[in-house]
């Protein structure tokens, strides 16, 4: 297993005339949780979709657990757990049926399917609604179902697109606790709008704007950039400064 479980080099993606991602390099080692930040439309979701193989980059390479995603997509995807934005799922299925489907698609058979589903359900505290149809779940439980399918096969790499979006404070706390625990022996990329989440969970922060990286460092290094005198919403201040400066340069 390589040192960097996630390694992306020179990722670029355009949609027609719009350049969504303009050359992003990322590497995340085992034991690290990378907070992926940026304003809406900065290219976060597009980058994550390229990292998971949903979108093909125009240029650049992605390696997941040492496997080239372009050369061996199935091998790379087996080592990856992904929570897409909005945690989409099959609404007409029951939680356990949905998790069993993802388990079978990942190659588990027989009693191992039930064991994996049981373990994933327990891990994200889905027991109260394990037999419920997904379309009838609350937003919080729906997101937990999405996280459960991403964890089910115990992947070394997790990519979570806004895992706490729309959750209440208790649910956010639980998900952050879970991500911290999982991050001890995995490589995790987590996109978020909430800067306090970066401080609470991440070991590293990356900020992108207009498809380019404008900051890469630890949450402490990010905090150190806050000008003297700013006492409230410190990270929000530096986030605005970084993304606004980049926007002015572009203009």
């Amino acid at each position: 297993m390589p040192a960097n479980l996630i390694q992306a080099t020179g990722l670029r993606k355009s949609f027609g005339t719009l350049a969504a991602v303009r050359g992003i390099d990322l590497c995340v080692a085992r034991g690290h949780v990378l907070g992926f930040l940026g304003p809406n439309g900065a290219g976060k979701s597009t980058t994550m979709r390229m990292l998971t193989g949903f979108l093909q980059p125009d240029a650049g390479t992605v390696n997941i657990a040492g496997i080239d995603l372009a050369m061996n997509p199935l091998g790379a995807k087996r080592n990856l757990g992904y929570l897409p934005e909005g945690a989409p799922a099959y609404g007409e299925m029951r939680v356990e049926e949905f998790l069993a489907f993802t388990a079978r698609a990942r190659g588990y058979r027989g009693a191992e399917v039930a064991r994996r589903v049981h373990s994933a359900v327990a891990r994200v505290h889905l027991q109260p609604c394990r037999g419920q149809r997904i379309e009838t779940l609350s937003k919080g439980y729906k997101r937990r179902t999405g996280i459960a399918q991403a964890l089910l096969h115990d992947p070394p790499v997790l990519i979570l697109d806004e895992p706490t979006d729309g959750l209440d404070p208790n649910q956010k706390f639980e998900v952050r606790q879970l991500v911290r625990d999982l991050g001890k022996d995995r490589a995790i990329i987590l996109s978020t709008h909430i800067l306090e989440e970066v401080e609470a969970v991440c070991t590293r922060a990356v900020i992108i704007n207009h498809g380019r990286m404008v900051f890469d460092g630890t949450p402490k290094e990010l905090d150190a950039r806050v000008p003297a005198g700013v006492t409230h919403n410190r990270l929000d201040h530096i986030f605005r400064t970084l993304t606004a400066a980049n926007s002015k340069e572009r203009a």
Partner: peptide, 30 residues
């Protein structure tokens, strides 16, 4: 990344990536 990527045309990959994929995590085989 080469534009020749075709999700459908790839089977389960060569030997080297297969071995890399077999680790303590994930399913034991494709």
């Amino acid at each position: 990344m080469s534009g020749a990527r075709d999700r459908s045309s790839h089977s389960d990959g060569g030997k080297m990536p297969e071995q890399a994929a077999r680790n303590s995590f994930g399913p034991p085989s494709t």
